[in-house]
Nucleic acid binder design. Structure first.
Lengths: 208, 208
DNA sequence: GGAAGTTAATCAAACGATTGATTAATTTTG
DNA sequence: CAAAATTAATCAATCGTTTGATTAACTTCC
């Protein structure tokens, strides 16, 4: 007989993440989290100390997974342009398979009321930006790329990806894109990857 | 003696917009709005019916101002590329002089809990997207531009602008960009305009 | 090996504080 | 004086958190 041991602690984290993504931090009550997770209300404070404790734990877990992924790319013995293509692909894959969380992260980024969380997200993003920074500068120095505004290129890469998953896009008249549909998700993801790779190739190698 | 007639109704709108931008809709209480505006709490309901009424009025006022600006551009007798440059400039100017509101709009866009507001914002953005759409397609058809992924170009233009004003950017080590400083705001705005105009020029005319 | 002790997990109920909203009375205005 | 604007006081509802009690699963000890 299967014991069906669903860890209540994890259930709370899962429910809270879902609700925070959908209705925001202040828009989600501990009672909702309790109901959605099947755990008693007191368990939230028992395990995490507070509602904010739950939020912090979610963000920490996610951001940890973020950091430990892209660092290998820069050590490959490939050209700057190929590195850039790989980073775009890796970044797109991460965002497109965690859209709800990515939205939540951006929402938190636009608020001034949790400065510590803002800093944490900022630092996590900074790591990605530094990596991009290094690759592009290396490319400029070794003559692969023309002399461009590095920070703005980074804003374009990250901004394009974020815009595609957050802003509403129509696929045709009256038919909006649904990224929660795996098929559409894959199609759009590959489309934005192709677009960005093409864009940086043309732009960065145009004025050598 | 100056009568100092500060309309209470407008004072509420101003205070509420400031607070909604800073701490979000659910994160702002009617008592905060009351205190910040100097109006009695009951005045909020007296004038706007409810807290949400205040929010809707703010969004409606702003979005109205949004729509009535860009439509003339497309009638100018200039090339598709020049139109595109103008739109980038106009869009950047609007965003950079309404950063707080732009953040609030994007925050609202990432929530699912106020569908009517979501639709309103979506429609307002759609107008801008349609304009861009038209210009780029015209350019492709008259041979000015190569055959590109139009929707993705739009995502790049809008995404880049949004990323610059929302995501944290460093100007140097330990020194973050402060867009509320008019001087820095102007410098960064002109930098992103130059970048985007350059980018679309190079990219769109590269594979004719 | 079984009674006694210890622990983490879970619960219903209640806590004080705060929420958005409303009332009824008062002041200001035209 | 009537209408509009403004006020303090109050409302029920909900908020995040805490409480004291109970359960079930292990240890410890004789």
């Amino acid at each position: 007989m299967k014991t069906e041991k669903v860890d209540k602690k994890q259930a709370i984290l899962d429910a809270a993440e879902k609700l925070f993504c959908e209705t925001g931090y202040e828009g989600t009550s501990t009672r909702q989290i309790s109901k959605e997770s099947g755990a008693n209300m007191a368990m939230i404070n028992y395990y995490f100390g507070s509602k904010e404790g739950v939020f912090i734990e979610i963000m920490n877990n996610r951001i940890e997974g973020f950091a430990s992924q892209l660092k290998i790319i820069n050590e490959d013995k490939i050209s700057a342009l190929e590195k850039l293509h790989k980073v775009i692909e890796g970044y797109a894959n991460r965002i497109f398979s965690n859209i709800a969380f990515h939205k939540m992260m951006h929402r938190e980024l636009s608020l001034t009321q949790r400065p510590d969380m803002y800093d944490k997200i900022k630092n996590a993003m900074s790591r990605n930006m530094s990596l991009l920074d290094r690759i592009i500068i290396d490319g400029i120095e070794d003559g692969s790329f023309g002399n461009v505004d590095v920070r703005m290129i980074i804003a374009t890469i990250m901004g394009t990806l974020t815009n595609v998953v957050i802003a509403p896009h129509k696929i045709s008249k009256d038919k909006a894109i649904d990224l929660s549909n795996p098929k559409e998700n894959k199609i759009i993801k590959e489309r934005v990857i192709a677009h960005l790779q093409n864009l940086v190739t043309v732009y960065l190698t145009s004025k050598k």
